[in-house]
Each structure stands twice: as C-alpha cells, then as structure tokens.
Design a protein around this nucleic acid. Sequence first.
DNA 1: CTGAAAGCGCTTACAG
DNA 2: CTGAAAGCGCTTACAG
Lengths: 349, 349
Amino acid sequence: MAQDDPRPGKTAKRATINDVARVAEVSKKTVSRVINQSPFVRQDTRERVNAVIKALGFTPDPQARGLAFRRSFLIGLIYDNPSPTYVVNMQQGVLDALKGSGLELVVHPCNRNSPTLLEDIRGFVERQRLYGVIMPPSVSEDEAVIALLRELDCPYVRIASVALDEPASMVVTNDGIGAAEAANHLADLGHLRIGLVRGPDLFRSSAVRSKGFLDALSARGIPLASEYDFKGAYTFESGVEAGHALLSLAHPPSAIFTLNDDMAIGIMQAARERGLELPRDLSIVGFDDLPMAARVWPNLTSVRLPIRDMGRMAAEKLLAPMRGVDAAQLKQPEVRPALVVRKSAIPAA
Amino acid sequence: MAQDDPRPGKTAKRATINDVARVAEVSKKTVSRVINQSPFVRQDTRERVNAVIKALGFTPDPQARGLAFRRSFLIGLIYDNPSPTYVVNMQQGVLDALKGSGLELVVHPCNRNSPTLLEDIRGFVERQRLYGVIMPPSVSEDEAVIALLRELDCPYVRIASVALDEPASMVVTNDGIGAAEAANHLADLGHLRIGLVRGPDLFRSSAVRSKGFLDALSARGIPLASEYDFKGAYTFESGVEAGHALLSLAHPPSAIFTLNDDMAIGIMQAARERGLELPRDLSIVGFDDLPMAARVWPNLTSVRLPIRDMGRMAAEKLLAPMRGVDAAQLKQPEVRPALVVRKSAIPAA
DNA sequence: CTGAAAGCGCTTACAG
DNA sequence: CTGAAAGCGCTTACAG
C-alpha cells in the first residue's frame, strides 16, 4: 500500500516507532525508552519525543511489543462462577482499572470438575503469554491451579473470602462481616428460631459466611438448633428443598438466613407452595444482593458485596508493578460487605 | 535462560517454528505452509511436519503470527446490552465456537451515548488489529459504528432482530415470531383486553416485537386499545410505572405483554402494590426468559431467545473464511424464539 | 544519557 | 512443491 493510497475511506498507515525516531531525530531505542518510562532519557529529549508521539498519534503495537517482551498485554479472567451478574460486574471492575493501560481483558470460563482443567489453563496462559490472571471463587481456591500459574511464572490475583495467599496477590472479601450483619439484623428484629442454609463445602465462602453468622448469633445469645442447619448447594432448587425441609418441622424457624440469594428465593418459592404468606409467616435474608433481590416480592433483604470494586482492586494489584508500586503496599480500601435492608425480614411475631 | 535451566518446576522452553523445521528437515517456510493449510505441500512432507509438530507439542505463537499477518487472533465482543445474563450467555456461545480455533475473546462494553464512542472503538480495533468483531443489540444497530468498522477493514457480525446487513455478517433473531406466539397464547386463554408495554425506540427489537405481537393479535380479531399501549424503557422501574398506569384505568386490561422480562416483573410489583392477586387478577407475559422468570412468583411465562446459540452462530460466521467456507452460504439453523409457558398467564375470567 | 546490531517467532514476496 | 532473504514493530544486550 503506497503512502498516498487513494482508496476512499482508507486511513493513513499507522505511525511506527521508526517514524517517531526519524521525526524526533533520535534512535528508535530512545523512543522505546520513552515509551517504557526509562529514567535514562534527558528531560528535553523525552519532551521532544513525546511531542512527536502525540503529533503522529503513535501508539506502540501490542503484538510487536509482546513478541519482544515475550509477554502479551492481555489479562485473563479465569472463572467458574455461575452467576452472570457476578461475572459481568467483575469484568466491568477489571475493565475500569485497565482503562488507559493498553491492556485488554480476555475471558476464560472453566469447569473445575473437568479432567482437562489444568491442561486447558496451561494452554491458555502459555500460548497467550498472559500478562496476568484474575480469578474469583471458586477457581481462586484451587491450589492446583495456583501451583500451575506459579510454575508458568504467570502473575495472578485471587479473590476469595479469606486470605489464601500473600497480600500482593489477594483481594479478601470479608464475607464474615456481612454474614454477621445479617445475624444482628435478625436478632434485632426479635427472632430466636433462626434457620441457616449453607452452601456446598467446595466453596470457602460457605464456611466463612457460616462462621461470621454463627459467631454473631451466639454473641447475641441465640443458639442454632441442629435441625435448623441445612446444607444447600447455592442453587435455587436446593433453596426450595431447604424451605420444605425447614418449614415442615414441628417447630419451624421464624426466620431463615441463606448464604446466597438464589437459595433465598428458593425458600420463598417453597413457602408459597406451602401456602404461607410472606413476609408475615417467615422472614428471609439472603447474600449477594443480585438484581433479582430488588425485584422479587417481598423485596429481599440481602448482603451486598462490592463486586465491581473487587474486580477493579484485583486488576490494580496486577498493574502495580507496571506503575512502579509494590502490590503488597498498594493503598486499597478493604472490601466491606453491607446489608441492604428491604422487606423480606420483619419483626418476629 | 540456558537449555538445561535447573530451576525447579520450570517447563522446558517452548518449541518454535525453527525447532520444527530443523527436526523435520525442511525450511521454516514449509512448516509455515503446513500450519496455514497451504495446498502447496506434498502429502508426505505435510505428514512428516505434522508428526514433528505433534511430537514437539508445537503451537504457533499468536503474537508472532499476528505481527507478521498484521492481524491479531482476537475477537472483540462490543456490547452495550445491560443484561448480565444476555452478555454472559453470548460470551459463552462465542467461546463455544472459538474452542480449538486458537482465537480468544476480548470483551469491550461500550456506551452508545458517549461522545467518544467511535474514537474508543477505533482505538480498540486498530490497536489490537482485531481479527473480527461481534455485536449484539443495540450497538449492532448503530450505523456509524458499522461504517467505522468498514473503514478499518475489520470483519464483523451483527446480531439483531431484523436483517440490517448482508447475510454473511448478520445473525437475525426473528423476535417477531416469539412475540406472535405470546399474542396467540393470550388469545387462546380468552383474553380480549390486552395491554402492551413497549421498549424504547432506540432498540429495533421494540419495533420488531411490537409488530409481531400486533399482527398476530389482529389476525385473531383482537384490537389494541390506544390506552393499553404503553411505551416503557426496558427497565424494571418503567415496568412498575406502566403497571400503575394501565391498572388505574377505568377498564384495566386483563392481560399485559411486556417486551422484556424486567418490565414484566415491574408490572408484578405494581400489581401487588395495588393489592391485586397474581395471576388471578392479571395475566402477564414477558420476553427474554431471564433466569429470574423461573424464580419470581407466579413463575413468569416468557419468550426465550437462544442467546448462547446466537453467539455461537455469530462467531462461526466470523470463522468461516478461515475454515475455507463462505459465511453467506454457511449452513446454520434459523434462530427460533419460543414461548416458555409458566404460571403468570391464566385463562381470562 | 544515547545508539547500532541482533533477535523475538512468524509471514510475505520473490526465486527456482 | 520448496527455500533463502527480508520484514512485521518492537526490545534486549552490549557498547560507548
């Protein structure tokens, strides 16, 4: 394609590092130093080069840079979380942080039960020479995956409800605090017969949320009857099942806390199938604050996690070295879950 | 790093095209021909090279290939759709098709109202030298964006409710068929006073769904009273508003069809705020079949679009040239929306 | 502080 | 059908 390509609508050929070097009358190596923020460039040289970069609208080609660096400018989001809201919010948060950095986000759902999980992740990370990887639960809790990333020398940040790793590669979500708020809320409303529907053991969040809830409850002098303790699967269906189990008891609970919203809404379904009126006959509190929580009737009281912020914080940790800061020292606020009070939990009769 | 790097846990250096060429005793150009499925390679040469590729576990480096090709192996998903379920399902569908192709999916949410929309998309597409772009509504309906992609010579596939482009770059979702099914369902149930809550004009789907619904309704001899015709915004809140407006009429409708589920659930909220019992006092049908539809009470009857399939089909069109087929001739099933009958619509009193 | 040379791992354009 | 040379747009390693 000639310089003066006459094809209509064609944009001019993109400026390269050579163009910048020629116009600024320096070597391309010096331009490269400017791009990479090397301190070994005289101030006036740097300014001249930057002016030319701006005038030519030059942006370095990520492919060429990646080839030379032996590392791409792609961040992988590896996840197995089944909640679309969670996933999309997290992507959004990561993208918030990536804006202007020149990095892009590549999504990579996976299946922890797949026998080819590790092989699959290895291929992805190695082939793309990823700049880094972000993982929400439950992949973030898979030590085999972590070991693999270490072997591949791939930087990563894990998002999880407890500190599973060093601070530089962890965003801890403090789920226990949110669960404690739920406990105190139900206690404040005067409930004494309180049921708990847990998630599967595979998820650390289930243990962490349970502990936060139960500790707060016992601090208020309220015990959990073993017949009120139900293990669900974090699914709507398991919530329905839990609802029927708990509500068919001789002395059913007056309130139920479920460790996620899908199960809370399952409880609602079961209650209605049994002819109960909500919230009069049963108070319910969930965890996640899905958009659905504000849409079901009665509007669901639920614990909200700042998922978008969590994604942003994770990405910022990954970018820290590039910005010359130590990820471990990065000043980031703590993740604070918060109870969103709506109408599904009311004072005990 | 030496060949015999003794660091524990380190993997061997990846094989390159040079390694393959050396072992197979051919030039790297011939290896390149094999990789790129060139017909100008003798059968036995090809087999020998393929054997070595397999033995060495060689996969071509996408960055190097991209640099030489002046085109990356990344597919961009550019979207402004606000529904997380829609977005995640579409991503999943695209990834289904990309599996094994060596391409990766880069997500790029955007805001059609942003003054920098075009500039932003231009930077993304140009900098990453995208292999292609997939767009669901409503970006897919933005002709300025399409003009830009043409200018940049970037292949694209648009997903939309009507054919806005040539077949090779369109997946048409036939929303009208689904809306017609909804109309027939309500007519079958004996409803005569039927309300319609539309979406915003910005979305073609609103016009297409409305037309499908109204045509089917009038074929059954049922007119739409103008006071039963409400323009919503595809949001829950606008559904609540529509519900109050329609239900406060002197002769309120006995059934309402909303052009998406969020608004349908808003109608439910309004009905309850007015003390109505559902579905006894009002039948409701939505569109989208969000996961929420099966979770609200009464479970919402809704039109389902095969979103994951749509994403897969779009990606297959983009991959067609690489696979040596003509995207326009690609044998793909039509997208068929289907009514999912649940409990929110019952026979008219 | 700056630069000329070589290289990252592939493909295009040209020969044969 | 196959290959040697040059190049894609950057960076590393080495000089100075």
